[in-house]
Computed example of a mutant assay.
Amino acid sequence: MPSMPNWRKSSYSGPNEPECVEVASLPTGIGLRDSKNPAAGHLTLSPQSFTTLVRQIKNG
């Protein structure tokens, strides 16, 4: 039986932060989901696409 993903929020997110994204390492890539509504599902990106996304966010 596969283990459950370890979803985590950024260390920059405060405990009461309303707008957070969680990430998890999945067998098929990197998962992204809305921390307010985890039951809504998630997106899965390849590691390369996730790295590109993070770079683009950091660069504005």
Rank of each mutant, 00 (worst) to 15 (best):
M1S: 14
M1I: 09
P2A: 06
S3F: 02
M4Q: 13
M4R: 12
M4K: 07
M4A: 15
M4Y: 04
M4V: 12
M4S: 14
P5H: 05
P5W: 03
N6I: 11
W7P: 01
W7D: 03
R8P: 00
R8D: 00
R8A: 14
S10N: 09
S10P: 08
S11W: 01
Y12N: 06
Y12A: 12
G14I: 05
G14M: 05
G14D: 08
G14P: 04
P15A: 14
P15Y: 08
E17G: 11
P18R: 07
P18F: 07
P18G: 05
P18Y: 05
E19R: 14
E19Q: 13
E19K: 09
C20P: 01
V21N: 02
E22W: 01
E22H: 01
V23M: 11
V23H: 02
V23R: 04
S25F: 06
S25K: 09
S25G: 07
L26T: 06
L26G: 02
L26E: 07
P27T: 11
P27L: 12
T28N: 13
T28G: 02
I30N: 01
G31F: 08
G31N: 10
G31P: 00
L32G: 03
R33W: 08
R33L: 07
D34W: 05
D34P: 04
S35I: 04
K36M: 09
K36E: 11
N37K: 12
P38Y: 07
P38G: 06
P38W: 06
P38D: 07
A39K: 13
A40Q: 14
G41F: 06
G41S: 09
H42K: 06
L43T: 04
T44W: 08
T44F: 08
T44A: 11
L45C: 08
L45F: 15
P47I: 09
Q48M: 08
Q48E: 14
Q48S: 14
Q48N: 11
F50T: 02
T52R: 14
T52N: 11
L53Y: 01
V54Y: 01
V54P: 01
R55A: 15
Q56C: 09
I57Q: 03
I57V: 15
I57A: 11
I57Y: 03
K58N: 14
K58D: 05
K58A: 13
N59V: 00
N59M: 12
G60N: 13
